[in-house]
Computed example of a mutant assay.
Amino acid sequence: MSSILTNASAMTALQTLAQTNKNLATTQNRISTGLRVTEASDNVAYWSIATGMRTQNSVLAAVQDGLGLGKAIVDTAYTALDKSIKIAQDIQAKYVAKETSGTDEDIIEAEIANLKAQIVQIAQSATFQGVNLLKANAEAQKVVTGFDAGGDTPGITTMEVAVYDLEAALTQATTSGTVGGAIDAMKAAAAALGSSKTRITTQTEYTKDLVDALNRGIGTLVDADMNAESARLAALQVQQQLGIQGLSIANTNSQNILSLFRN
């Protein structure tokens, strides 16, 4: 039946075209943003999971900053202590030379005093962001070691790094034997710092890997497949063109009715 009030074909064609335009807009948005889930209405479950993972990534970014600061503090102290041990070994050699007959004790004593002053200077300059683990009266420092996401109270984990009074390390050392004892203490302190340094480095690498894993997980959930979206865009553009043509054809039915009333 032909009617001038209702054009069923045109209505169907219009609905089809409207749906095609809606799908086309969705695909174009995915291509422009690179995401197939940009808000909760796109996919509630995936959006919620991705949002939680992004929050965890933000926390881990802060942890990475804390690890970097802690590593720099420990590394500064370790480097200074390592250099001081080498100088202390030179001091020990000087004391051995001093005990050898025929040497100028005054010259050697002056050299030893100069070397000890170097160690004191190293201790005083081994500072990073105002923190010095080798200076006299320094306080033990807490440094970030990671993030504990489990348990009832997730949060940043820390460890305490002990200080070593490098300024006073060789103050009382006046013989090769006493210097040897000071060197042993310096080595023990360096070993402790080295262990802390290794722990922080390991945790830094793990945190970076964890961030990468979370980013991959987020991408799996919300990233658009650009190859698929490109193919879908081409198909929808063809559907849009055909829909427009179909609507145009349906609208000509009303014009055909006029021909029935012409002489």
Rank of each mutant, 00 (worst) to 15 (best):
S2C: 05
S3C: 08
S3I: 02
L5A: 14
A8P: 09
M11A: 11
A13N: 09
A13P: 15
Q15H: 11
A18Y: 15
A18Q: 15
Q19A: 08
T20Y: 04
N21T: 15
N21A: 08
A25S: 14
R30S: 06
T33H: 09
V37P: 09
E39S: 11
A40Q: 05
S41V: 12
D42W: 04
N43L: 06
N43W: 02
V44D: 11
V44R: 11
V44A: 12
Y46D: 10
I49S: 02
M53R: 01
M53W: 13
R54N: 12
S58R: 02
A61C: 00
A62V: 07
V63T: 10
D65T: 10
L67K: 09
K71T: 08
D75G: 08
A77H: 07
Y78H: 06
T79E: 09
K83S: 11
S84G: 02
Q89G: 05
Q92I: 03
K94C: 07
K94T: 00
V96M: 02
G102T: 10
T103C: 08
E105H: 15
E105P: 05
E105W: 11
D106I: 11
I107E: 09
A110G: 11
E111M: 03
A113G: 12
N114W: 08
L115G: 02
L115D: 02
Q118K: 12
V120N: 01
A123G: 01
Q124P: 01
V131D: 02
L133S: 00
L134A: 02
A136N: 09
T145I: 00
G146F: 06
A149R: 05
G150K: 15
G151N: 10
G151A: 08
G155N: 01
T157M: 04
M159G: 06
E160S: 14
A162V: 12
Y164V: 01
D165L: 02
L166R: 00
T171R: 06
T175Y: 05
T178E: 13
G180A: 00
G181K: 05
G181P: 02
A182M: 00
D184V: 15
D184E: 15
D184L: 10
D184S: 14
K187V: 15
A188V: 15
S195G: 13
I200C: 01
I200F: 09
Y206M: 12
K208V: 06
V211G: 00
D212H: 07
A213N: 07
N215S: 10
R216M: 15
D223G: 14
D225E: 08
S230G: 09
A231M: 12
R232C: 07
R232Y: 07
A235E: 09
L236C: 03
Q237P: 03
Q240H: 10
Q241D: 09
Q241I: 06
Q241H: 06
L242D: 14
Q245R: 14
G246K: 13
N251R: 14
N253A: 15
S254F: 09
Q255I: 15
L260A: 07
